[in-house]
Amino acid sequence: MATIQEVAEAFSRHRFSEVYPFLHPEVTWTLVGAAKLVGQEQVVQACENALAELARSTTQFLRFKTIANADSVAVHSVARYVDAKWQSSFVSSCDLYEFTQGHLTSITSYTAEVDPDTIA
């Protein structure tokens, strides 16, 4: 069985299918400033939509740091996305995960496109 840290890291690395078995039926995913998804069905659909978009690009993680305790995990990452036309974008994100009895119950995601020259 995967640890909560492994589940959270898989989600932050866009390996969503690995996370689906751990989603609580009433999971919430708050995309700060954009949307709040409620329930396994909405979260899985959003993940599948994201995977379809990601299939048109490559992803390179430049930073990936995790902090975990007994029932929560925080993942901070900076990723470089390159599309088919070789155009790059850099995104910094912080995902906060909450678990109850091994089930992922809450995700809060903060994301911002960043200037690559500001990445330390």
Rank of each mutant, 00 (worst) to 15 (best):
A2Y: 04
T3Y: 03
I4E: 09
Q5Y: 11
V7N: 03
V7E: 06
V7S: 02
A8M: 11
E9F: 09
S12D: 11
H14E: 01
H14S: 01
F16G: 05
V19P: 01
Y20D: 07
Y20K: 00
Y20A: 03
E26M: 10
A34Q: 10
A35T: 10
A35M: 09
G39S: 05
Q40N: 14
Q40T: 15
E41D: 04
Q42F: 06
V43I: 04
A46Q: 11
E48V: 07
E48P: 00
E48K: 08
L51S: 14
A52Y: 07
A52R: 08
S57T: 14
Q60E: 11
L62S: 06
F64C: 00
K65P: 02
T66V: 15
I67Q: 12
A68Q: 13
N69H: 07
S72K: 13
A74G: 09
V75P: 02
V78C: 05
Y81I: 11
Y81N: 11
V82M: 10
K85C: 04
Q87G: 00
V91W: 12
S92L: 01
L96V: 15
E98T: 08
E98V: 02
T100Q: 04
Q101P: 00
Q101Y: 07
H103R: 14
H103K: 14
L104F: 06
T105E: 05
V114N: 00
V114F: 01
P116G: 00
P116K: 03
T118F: 04
T118A: 01
